[in-house]
Amino acid sequence: MRSSNRNWLTLGGAASVLTSCGSDRAVAPPLPRPATPITAPAVADEPVKIGEPYNVGGKTYVPADPVNYDEVGYASWYGEEAIGKPTANGEDFMPSAISGAHKTLPLPSYVEVTALNSGRTILVRLNDRGPFSNDKLIDLSHGAAEQLGITGDGAAAVRVRRVNPPEQEKALLRAYHRAPARIETPQPLLKVLRGRLAEAPASPPPQPQAARPVVQTLPAVSSRSRPGASFDTSTPPIPKPAPKAMAPAKPAPAKPVSGGYVVQVAALSSQSRAEALARQIGAHAVAAGPVWRVRYGPYPSQAAAQAGVKAAEAKGFANVRVMANDAR
């Protein structure tokens, strides 16, 4: 087929030359339209960081550099709660970027993520560590989840395959744009991938997820003044849930009163995600305009609010804010 196309092009070119012979001046063929320029990338792919083994929640993760990584599992996503906070490789998190978090792949890496319910496949740039939940394979930014079509409250079954895309597509993702979507995965292959997911030894069905504390529960990244340095393994592990035999923690008040001080852990756009996180860490969720704030308190003074700071740190949240309680 390729050679026949060239023959037709040759015949067409010859006919064009013969036609132009009768005129005083041959008409030059139109010049190809220049490609749309890509703006300078906002972030860089160098240096690539792998890092040393690290421990979160009593489990050790060993970063590696597999060339042929291809796994199936469940994907969750995170967004507004981490705006402007640093990812594990030192970049500022942007919810609209097509990015993701993985426990062990190098940072950055590029992966194709396929939704096993629809076959839709997109290109994602990994720049963060997580999700630290045994039933999750990858955490996607809100922009990536939106492009993939999985922005519900639960987890979605996916395939994650490491790839080396063209430089132009890498540049698009580095500049916080979307790369073109891949051809949808055909149904026969989706059937095989779903079978792999069902056979996995630790593949529980998707469950509603709480908002992911992106940076606070991650191994801290070494200073930007030391490019390529390994991840710091000094981050305290997330405590395991208390045994059933222990007395339950004192429940937070259902209706927080105004006045005093509170310790704010996160601000989310989803009420269900905020309430799920509040239940998980023993705090409460408060509506504040278009967002829902997850808080400890109120406390009568800033000194008393340090108890909330310690409670947040025990749950894996660092650098939380003590602020005046504006609940109504």
Rank of each mutant, 00 (worst) to 15 (best):
Q209G: 04
I122S: 07
T60H: 04
L105H: 06
L140S: 13
A245G: 13
T87L: 03
A283W: 03
D139C: 13
P227F: 05
P86Y: 09
M323L: 15
S141L: 11
V320F: 06
R129E: 01
E146C: 00
A307V: 07
S23Y: 02
H102M: 02
R226Y: 03
G154D: 11
A245H: 15
R120F: 01
K191V: 13
T235P: 13
A40I: 08
P206S: 14
A15M: 01
D92M: 09
S118R: 01
P63A: 13
L137Y: 04
V67A: 11
P47F: 08
P131M: 14
E167V: 00
L123K: 05
V221D: 05
A276Q: 06
Q271P: 12
N5E: 00
D139E: 15
R33H: 08
P106S: 08
P66M: 10
E71C: 01
V215R: 08
D326Y: 03
K255M: 09
L172G: 04
G149A: 08
I83V: 14
G79M: 12
G289M: 11
Q302V: 06
P204V: 05
S258I: 02
Q280E: 12
S230M: 07
A40C: 03
E146K: 07
A318Q: 02
P253H: 06
D65W: 09
K85T: 07
K170W: 13
G152E: 02
P290S: 09
S270W: 12
A303K: 15
A327C: 08
I138L: 07
T151F: 08
Q264R: 10
K85H: 12
D135K: 04
R125N: 10
Y110H: 05
P206I: 08
E167F: 00
P41W: 10
V322A: 08
P213G: 11
P208Y: 00
P180W: 01
G297W: 13
L9P: 05
A157Q: 05
A274G: 09
I281K: 10
A156H: 07
E275Y: 11
W77Y: 04
R174Q: 15
V265T: 06
P63Q: 13
W292P: 03
P30S: 02
A115E: 12
E46G: 08
A267Q: 13
V56Q: 15
A278H: 02
T235F: 07
K103P: 00
P63M: 15
T39P: 08
M323I: 15
A274W: 13
N127C: 09
P205M: 07
A303N: 09
R194W: 01
L11P: 14
R226S: 09
D45K: 02
E112F: 04
A35N: 10
R279Q: 05
A144M: 09
A303L: 13
A181M: 15
A288V: 15
E46R: 15
A305N: 00
E146Y: 02
A283L: 02
P208T: 00
A211D: 03
A283Q: 08
P227S: 10
H102Q: 03
K49P: 00
L268R: 01
P41S: 10
W292D: 14
K315W: 15
G316L: 13
L193K: 11
A15D: 01
T36K: 03
